[in-house]
């Protein structure tokens, strides 16, 4: 048996109460608290936390710099391009190796198709993604200064020879620039030094710079001994006998003993003697064995 009071509250609520309640439900003034104390706690936590954080980060950076980490030691002067590169690398998270490899394949393919502008942008992307692999800088520069430059030189679509030569020169210089950038980031790379030296010797006809680069290469760990003889020969062949002799003297002074087989000291000594007599160096100033 149901009592008569079983009503639906929503429908049976007295009109005046419903109206009053409805009005009182929406108010326009907020008189609760605006903030709670824990917000202060949060601020405090942040302040206490950031000091040791920054100190730890500075210490880690210092230790990484001491260990010769590329990401820290080779910060290029141009912050903008550096930031772009950092963004790219971090977005690719770790797949940059794969992406770089993809673009490197594209370099080879666009070389086959003789699509030079595409090849250049692919070279730039590869070196941007893998700046610490000298092989990409070196090969990229070689492509530009040799392959592209020679192709342009022989491209008969441009009738003016003078203009063709200018274009060739442009590409050689582009290649040189690329390798220079690579050297800035990889100053320890013997191969890159040698490649750039060859470029100067063969393409830019600049034996002095080439000799300087060979010399730098010979001073790096992992250099082949014959590298250290090359500057002397190059300079003499270019007619710069005094500079050649100066070089040999430097080399001689750098080594305490002169018996190392790999260095072929007898040959070096022959060179020195020939130059000394040709340049009429006084006996007293000649190198003593």
């Amino acid at each position: 048996m149901r009592p008569a009071h079983d009503i639906d509250v929503e429908n049976e609520l007295p009109e005046d109460i419903a109206a009053a309640a409805d009005e009182s439900r929406w108010i326009s003034r907020w008189d609760g608290p605006w903030h709670t104390r824990p917000s202060l706690r949060i601020l405090l936590l942040l302040i206490v936390f950031c000091v040791p954080k920054l100190l730890m980060e500075t210490a880690i950076d210092a230790s990484q710099r001491a260990a010769g980490f590329h990401s820290i030691t080779h910060i290029s002067s141009d912050l903008r391009s550096r930031l772009t590169q950092d963004t790219l690398i971090s977005i690719l998270a770790g797949l940059r190796g794969v992406v770089a490899d993809y673009y490197w394949r594209d370099v080879t393919e666009s070389f086959m198709r003789e699509d030079w502008s595409r090849m250049r942008s692919s070279i730039q992307l590869t070196t941007m993604l893998q700046p610490n692999s000298p092989i990409f800088w070196g090969m990229g520069g070689w492509h530009m200064a040799y392959n592209v430059a020679i192709a342009k030189r022989n491209d008969k679509r441009e009738p003016s020879l003078a203009r063709r030569i200018a274009i060739e020169r442009y590409w050689v210089e582009e290649g040189e620039k690329l390798m220079r950038n690579g050297l800035e980031i990889n100053p320890e790379s013997v191969d890159l030094h040698i490649q750039l030296a060859q470029l100067h010797l063969q393409r830019l006809k600049d034996p002095v710079t080439a000799a300087k680069l060979y010399e730098q290469a010979s001073l790096l760990p992992g250099a082949q001994p014959f590298n250290s003889r090359l500057p002397g020969f190059i300079l003499r062949r270019a007619g710069r006998e005094q500079e050649a002799l100066d070089y040999w003297r430097r080399l001689w002074a750098r080594h305490r003993t002169h018996t190392d087989k790999d260095m072929d000291w007898p040959r070096i000594l022959r060179e020195i003697r020939a130059l000394e007599s040709k340049l009429n160096v006084p006996i007293a100033e000649r190198i003593r064995e």
């Binding site: 990401s71 820290i72 610490n132």
Partner: peptide
């Protein structure tokens, strides 16, 4: 960036 130790 300090995790570039992995790349190194």
């Amino acid at each position: 960036r300090s995790f570039s130790a992995i790349d190194e």
